[in-house]
Structure formats: structure tokens, C-alpha cells
Amino acid sequence: MSPNPNSDLFENLKGELRRGSLILAVLAELRSEKYGYTLRKDLADKGMEIDEGTLYPLLRRLESQGLLTSQWREEDKRNKRFYRLSADGELILLRLLVEWENIDASLNKILKEQHHGTTGPVPARN
């Protein structure tokens, strides 16, 4: 079976779509303190897979932007870096969530209008 020529394009577009959502998911997940490995596992358990090469640089960037704080601490005889949302991060997260809901509502409206105008299926939402 030949590979789907659009699969690369789809993966690129999916990556773009997920990029902003990942920041939101990481910020939301770090309302409680976690270290990198457990954060990644928790996100994966909730359906938000993220590879290490993306997560750790992202955590550093968010910390340098003042949205996260981190602390090295020993746990199970190993030093681990624990991250949590900062006070600024909490405010930004609230604003981003409002924005996210607005986008979600707008998109739903657009998709419903499309559905009424065509016979095609409306994509299933999780």
C-alpha cells in the first residue's frame, strides 16, 4: 500500500493546531506541583501526548517568561526538578482559558453552520 501523500501535510497541520493547546495543557496541569517525567505521563494519560524534546524546552521557556517556578528537590533518592504555576502564570492561564472557550464556541458555531449548509458529517468532538 502506497503512503498517503497528504500524511506529512496532515502531521504538520496537526502540529500547528496542537502547539498552542499544549501550552494551555501544561499550564493547567502544573496548577499542582510536578516534575517533568510525571507531568508527561499525566498529560499522556489524559490524551495529550507530548515528547520529551518538546516538553522540557517548553518548561524552560515558560519558566523564563515567569509563568512557572521550579525547584530542585530530592525524591526517592534522586534529585528532581519540580515545576508549578507561578502567580503570574495563574492569571495568564485564566485569561488563556477564556480565550480558549471563545475560540471553541466560535469554531462550534462555524462547524454547525457548515453542517446545516452541507450533507457532510460534523467531526466528532471529544
Binding site: 517533568g36 520529551e52 522540557y56 530542585w72 534522586r78 534529585n79 528532581k80
Partner: peptide
Amino acid sequence: IIAEISED
């Protein structure tokens, strides 16, 4: 960075 990657 190395300490964090190592830990992971």
C-alpha cells in the same frame, strides 16, 4: 539541562 534530561 543535563541534570534534568538525566533524571528523565
